[in-house]
Amino acid sequence: MKSIILLCSMLLCISFVAASYPAYPVSIQHKLIGTWQDGSRGQTYSQYDIVLSNHGNKNIKQIVIGTDATCRLRDNNSIWNVKVVDGPSFIDFLILPSYQDINAGASYTFGYIIHGSSPANLFVKNVIYA
Protein backbone atom coordinates (compact mmCIF):
# COMPACT_ATOMS: atom_id res chain seq x y z
CA MET A 1 0.00 0.00 0.00
CA LYS A 2 2.83 2.39 0.85
CA SER A 3 4.48 1.73 -2.50
CA ILE A 4 1.23 2.54 -4.33
CA ILE A 5 0.86 5.81 -2.44
CA LEU A 6 4.51 6.66 -3.14
CA LEU A 7 4.08 5.84 -6.83
CA CYS A 8 0.91 7.96 -7.08
CA SER A 9 2.65 10.85 -5.33
CA MET A 10 5.59 10.67 -7.74
CA LEU A 11 3.27 10.58 -10.77
CA LEU A 12 1.35 13.56 -9.44
CA CYS A 13 4.59 15.53 -9.00
CA ILE A 14 5.70 14.64 -12.52
CA SER A 15 2.36 15.76 -13.96
CA PHE A 16 2.66 19.16 -12.21
CA VAL A 17 6.19 19.66 -13.55
CA ALA A 18 5.17 18.62 -17.07
CA ALA A 19 2.14 20.93 -17.02
CA SER A 20 4.21 23.96 -16.05
CA TYR A 21 6.75 23.58 -18.89
CA PRO A 22 5.39 24.04 -22.42
CA ALA A 23 6.57 21.72 -25.17
CA TYR A 24 8.17 24.69 -26.94
CA PRO A 25 9.65 27.80 -25.32
CA VAL A 26 7.38 30.08 -27.36
CA SER A 27 4.58 32.33 -26.15
CA ILE A 28 1.67 33.80 -28.10
CA GLN A 29 0.35 37.17 -26.94
CA HIS A 30 -2.80 38.78 -28.37
CA LYS A 31 -2.90 42.59 -28.40
CA LEU A 32 -6.27 44.15 -29.24
CA ILE A 33 -5.74 47.12 -31.56
CA GLY A 34 -9.41 48.05 -31.94
CA THR A 35 -13.01 46.91 -32.38
CA TRP A 36 -15.62 48.52 -34.59
CA GLN A 37 -19.03 48.08 -36.19
CA ASP A 38 -19.21 47.96 -39.98
CA GLY A 39 -22.63 49.41 -40.73
CA SER A 40 -22.64 48.36 -44.38
CA ARG A 41 -22.05 44.71 -43.43
CA GLY A 42 -23.83 44.79 -40.06
CA GLN A 43 -20.84 43.08 -38.46
CA THR A 44 -18.44 43.66 -35.56
CA TYR A 45 -14.74 43.34 -36.39
CA SER A 46 -11.60 43.43 -34.25
CA GLN A 47 -7.96 43.91 -35.18
CA TYR A 48 -5.30 42.04 -33.22
CA ASP A 49 -1.53 42.05 -33.27
CA ILE A 50 -0.08 38.66 -32.35
CA VAL A 51 3.39 38.59 -30.79
CA LEU A 52 5.31 35.31 -31.00
CA SER A 53 8.17 35.38 -28.47
CA ASN A 54 11.05 32.90 -28.62
CA HIS A 55 12.10 32.26 -25.01
CA GLY A 56 14.55 29.54 -26.03
CA ASN A 57 18.28 29.70 -26.73
CA LYS A 58 18.02 28.58 -30.39
CA ASN A 59 16.78 30.50 -33.42
CA ILE A 60 13.43 29.41 -34.83
CA LYS A 61 13.52 28.68 -38.56
CA GLN A 62 9.82 27.82 -38.85
CA ILE A 63 6.86 27.69 -36.51
CA VAL A 64 3.46 26.15 -37.11
CA ILE A 65 0.62 27.95 -35.33
CA GLY A 66 -2.61 25.97 -35.12
CA THR A 67 -6.06 27.49 -34.95
CA ASP A 68 -9.68 26.42 -35.18
CA ALA A 69 -13.06 27.72 -36.33
CA THR A 70 -12.66 30.79 -34.08
CA CYS A 71 -10.24 32.25 -36.66
CA ARG A 72 -12.89 33.83 -38.90
CA LEU A 73 -11.07 36.49 -40.89
CA ARG A 74 -12.96 39.47 -42.33
CA ASP A 75 -11.65 38.56 -45.81
CA ASN A 76 -8.59 37.08 -47.53
CA ASN A 77 -6.63 40.34 -47.13
CA SER A 78 -7.22 40.57 -43.37
CA ILE A 79 -4.08 38.79 -42.20
CA TRP A 80 -0.48 39.88 -42.65
CA ASN A 81 3.12 38.84 -41.91
CA VAL A 82 2.22 35.10 -41.89
CA LYS A 83 1.29 32.51 -44.48
CA VAL A 84 -2.15 30.91 -44.20
CA VAL A 85 -2.69 27.19 -44.84
CA ASP A 86 -6.40 26.49 -45.27
CA GLY A 87 -8.18 23.39 -44.13
CA PRO A 88 -11.47 22.12 -45.54
CA SER A 89 -13.70 24.66 -43.78
CA PHE A 90 -11.43 27.14 -41.96
CA ILE A 91 -7.81 28.21 -41.51
CA ASP A 92 -5.96 25.09 -40.43
CA PHE A 93 -2.65 26.67 -39.46
CA LEU A 94 -0.28 29.61 -39.94
CA ILE A 95 3.44 29.55 -40.72
CA LEU A 96 6.19 32.15 -40.96
CA PRO A 97 7.11 33.56 -44.36
CA SER A 98 10.07 31.61 -45.80
CA TYR A 99 12.46 34.55 -45.31
CA GLN A 100 11.59 35.05 -41.62
CA ASP A 101 13.33 33.55 -38.57
CA ILE A 102 12.75 34.35 -34.89
CA ASN A 103 16.10 34.70 -33.14
CA ALA A 104 16.65 33.38 -29.63
CA GLY A 105 15.18 35.86 -27.16
CA ALA A 106 13.42 37.83 -29.93
CA SER A 107 9.81 38.29 -31.01
CA TYR A 108 7.87 38.44 -34.26
CA THR A 109 4.54 40.18 -34.83
CA PHE A 110 1.74 39.45 -37.26
CA GLY A 111 -1.81 40.68 -37.34
CA TYR A 112 -5.34 39.97 -38.43
CA ILE A 113 -8.86 41.39 -38.55
CA ILE A 114 -11.48 38.94 -37.33
CA HIS A 115 -15.27 38.74 -37.02
CA GLY A 116 -16.44 39.57 -33.51
CA SER A 117 -14.53 40.87 -30.52
CA SER A 118 -12.81 37.74 -29.20
CA PRO A 119 -9.35 36.68 -30.40
CA ALA A 120 -8.87 33.47 -32.35
CA ASN A 121 -7.63 30.38 -30.51
CA LEU A 122 -3.96 30.04 -31.48
CA PHE A 123 -1.47 27.43 -30.27
CA VAL A 124 2.00 26.21 -31.19
CA LYS A 125 1.83 22.94 -33.12
CA ASN A 126 5.47 22.59 -34.12
CA VAL A 127 8.77 24.46 -34.11
CA ILE A 128 11.75 23.91 -36.41
CA TYR A 129 15.02 25.34 -35.17
CA ALA A 130 17.74 26.80 -37.39
Rank of each mutant, 00 (worst) to 15 (best):
S9H: 02
L11C: 13
L12S: 15
L12C: 14
C13K: 07
I14H: 03
S15C: 09
A19P: 05
A19M: 10
S20E: 11
P22K: 04
A23M: 08
Y24C: 02
Y24A: 02
P25T: 06
P25S: 06
S27C: 01
S27F: 00
S27E: 09
S27W: 00
H30V: 08
K31H: 12
L32C: 08
G34Q: 05
T35K: 03
W36T: 15
Q37V: 14
Q37N: 15
Q37H: 14
Q37D: 15
D38Q: 10
G39N: 15
G39E: 15
R41Y: 07
R41V: 11
G42L: 04
Y45F: 15
Y48L: 05
D49C: 01
V51N: 01
L52E: 07
S53P: 02
H55Q: 15
H55W: 09
H55K: 14
H55I: 06
N57C: 00
K58T: 05
I60M: 05
K61S: 11
Q62W: 01
V64G: 04
V64S: 08
V64M: 09
V64A: 08
V64F: 02
I65W: 00
T67P: 03
A69P: 04
A69W: 07
T70P: 01
R74C: 03
R74H: 05
R74D: 10
R74G: 05
N76E: 14
S78K: 01
S78V: 03
W80D: 14
W80A: 13
V82D: 03
V82L: 01
